[in-house]
């Protein structure tokens, strides 16, 4: 399972990053936490993207994960990082599994828009419900790890990076299995897949549920690293748009790509807000068009080209 190059890079790179985090300045650790949290959601969208499916509503699962953490914290006083993470991922996964029964029959823009509609229904509910924090959202306490309340964010960073490593390894393996390979074939020709004897609906349902679990986990981790949740930065359609943007930016080539793409996104955003606060959308939109026209494989295609020319 861990014999291929990608797995080795993920493992070794991940451990090095965890060590690096111990000595790195706070702001870098923060960027890495945000980047890696979000990258989990991108990992799921990558699988869908390879299958030819783009969801313009995965903020639904991202938000479910984040709000589960908030509710666990505020209503039930749950502080443990793993309980919160599992809670967020499982609830989002359950929702994804149920919604998946409908979603597996949709393709193209219908798939994209039904996801948008569902996420906006949740957004509408939360924005108008006082007990769910309305537009202000909630502040979330720093999580405890194995019962210990850490004094810095470093232990949370270690947890997030570990989760990222494990998820990347699992998805990397999944993409090598028969059902995991059924991405491009479904995009190319569904009829043939059915005639070969595999249910396209089942394959898509599984991928969709996986993407929901990952997005939920991403939301839960993001909520804990930010220390707060609010509808506009967790569930609004612009969040879904951001997730799609990072997916395209990263490229579908490899499970490492989402992590690089998410970090580039975080850095890009931080600098853009400092240097040209009014040009953020222009930068994102311009990057979008550039990638679609000139770099369809995203950042990953640059890296793999670089790797090939040096070796």
């Amino acid at each position: 399972m861990l014999r291929d190059n990608t797995s080795k890079v993920v493992l070794i790179g991940g451990i090095l990053i965890i060590l690096f985090g111990a000595v790195a300045p706070n702001w870098i650790v923060n960027q890495l936490m945000f980047g890696f949290s979000r990258a989990l959601a991108i990992l799921g969208l990558l699988v869908l993207w390879r299958t030819g499916l783009v969801s313009f509503g995965h903020a639904f699962y991202f938000g479910l994960g984040a709000y589960t953490v908030a509710i666990l914290d505020i209503q039930l006083g749950v502080t443990d990082v793993f309980v919160r993470l599992l809670g967020g991922a499982c609830l989002a996964g359950l929702a994804g599994f149920l919604v998946g029964f409908i979603m597996r029959n949709y393709r193209d823009i219908f798939f994209a828009m039904l996801n948008t509609a569902i996420s906006m229904v949740l957004y509408g509910i939360i924005v108008k419900t006082e007990s769910l924090g309305s537009t202000d959202g909630f502040a979330i306490s720093l999580p405890t790890i194995f019962g210990v309340a850490p004094e810095t964010k470093y232990p949370l960073f270690v947890v997030i990076t570990t989760v990222a490593i494990v998820s990347a390894l699992l998805i990397n393996f999944y993409l090598k299995t028969t059902i995991g390979r059924l991405t491009t074939p479904i995009r190319d020709n569904e009829i043939r897949v059915e005639y070969l004897g595999f249910s396209v609906a089942h394959a898509i349902h599984l991928k969709y549920t996986m993407s929901a679990i990952l997005a939920g986990g991403a939301g839960a981790l993001m909520a804990m690293s930010l220390g707060q949740v609010d509808p506009d930065s967790m569930i609004n359609w612009t969040v879904s748009g951001e997730l799609v943007f990072i997916t395209i930016l990263s490229g579908p080539g490899n499970v490492i790509a989402p992590f690089i793409g998410s970090l580039v996104f975080e850095v890009l955003r931080t600098y853009a807000f400092e240097l040209a606060p009014h040009l953020w959308q222009l930068i994102v939109g311009g990057t979008f068009l550039t990638i679609i026209f000139f770099l369809p494989g995203g950042i990953w295609s640059l890296i793999s080209k670089l790797g090939r020319s040096t070796s």
Binding site: M1, K176, T177, T178, I179, L182, P185, V193, L196, G197
Partner: peptide, 16 residues
């Protein structure tokens, strides 16, 4: 992929 679908039915689809 045609071979794998034919030969790896059921849970075997979750193997490499």
């Amino acid at each position: 992929i045609a071979l794998a679908i034919a030969k790896n039915r059921g849970f075997a689809a979750l193997r490499e």
